[in-house]
Design a protein around this nucleic acid. Structure first.
Lengths: 115, 115
DNA sequence: GCTCGTCCCATCGACTGTCGATGGGAGCAT
DNA sequence: ATGCTCCCATCGACAGTCGATGGGACGAGC
C-alpha cells in the first residue's frame, strides 16, 4: 500500500484555470464540492490538489455569474450535500474558456520552443 | 488597412507563467526590458501582450533570486538600456520551471479531455 | 450509547502576482 | 523646437489561491 503515490504533494495549479477545471468537471454530471476536488485529483493522477478553500470561493463565483446552479440533496453516503450543475450559460462559458486556454497555451508554447 | 490584425488585443497570460517566459527569452541572449516585451509579443504572434508594469516587477524578482543579472549599456538605437542576462542558477531554474509547467499542463489536459 | 473517523459545508486573513495609470529622460527626425 | 519612439520605473487597485480554522452529521466499533 504505501506507494510512491503521496510524493511531495502540494502542487499549485495555474491561477485562473480553476474555473475552467470546475466547469469541465461538472460537464460530466452534477457533483458536490468535495466530490469535485476528488475528481480533479483522480483525473490528474494526484498532480492537481485543489483545496476546499480554493474550491468554495470559486463555486460562489460561478454561481454568481450564473454558470452553475446549486441544490441541496443527499450524497451517496447519505450525507447533506450541495450539488452543483452546469447551466446552459455555463456550457457556453466552458467552450469559450477552453478555446481561450488553448489559445494561450499555444502562444506560450511558441515562445518556449523558439530558437 | 484596418485589418483583422489588431483584434481585440488585451490578452492576459496565465499568472505564474511570466517568470518562465522571461527566463526563456533571456536564454536566447541578453536583452533589455523593452526588448523582452517585444520578443514575447512577436514570438507569440501578438497573443501575449506583456505590459511593462508587469515586466519590471518580475525582473526585480528574478534579480533578487539571482536568476538574472543586469548591466547598463547602450541599445542598438544608442539609448541607455539595462541588459538582463541569465545566470547559471537562472538556467537551472528555467529547466525546473519548464518541467513543472509541462507537468501541470499535462495534468490539466487529462482533466480537460476526460469523458 | 459513546467516540471517533470520514464526509461535507464554509469563512477569514495573508499573500502573491498582474494590470492600468502615471511620470520622466534621452535620441532622432522634421 | 516639437514631437515621436525608445527605455526606465513606481504606485495603487484588484483578483485569485492557500493555510488555518470551525462545525455538523452519519456510520462503525467498542
Amino acid at each position: 500500500m504505501g506507494r510512491a503515490a503521496d510524493r511531495d504533494a502540494s502542487l499549485e495549479l495555474l491561477p485562473g484555470t480553476l474555473d475552467l477545471l470546475i466547469l469541465k468537471t461538472l460537464a460530466v454530471g452534477a457533483e458536490h464540492g468535495y466530490g469535485i476536488a476528488q475528481r480533479l485529483k483522480a483525473l490528474s493522477e494526484d498532480v492537481l490538489q485543489v483545496g476546499e478553500s480554493s474550491l468554495y470561493p470559486a463555486l460562489q463565483r460561478l454561481l454568481l455569474k450564473g454558470w452553475v446552479k446549486a441544490e441541496w440533496g443527499a450524497s451517496e453516503n447519505n450525507r447533506r450535500a450541495r450539488y452543483y450543475t452546469l447551466t446552459a450559460a455555463g456550457r457556453k462559458q466552458l467552450t469559450a474558456e477552453r478555446e481561450e486556454f488553448d489559445r494561450l497555451i499555444l502562444a506560450i508554447h511558441k515562445v518556449l520552443n523558439a530558437t
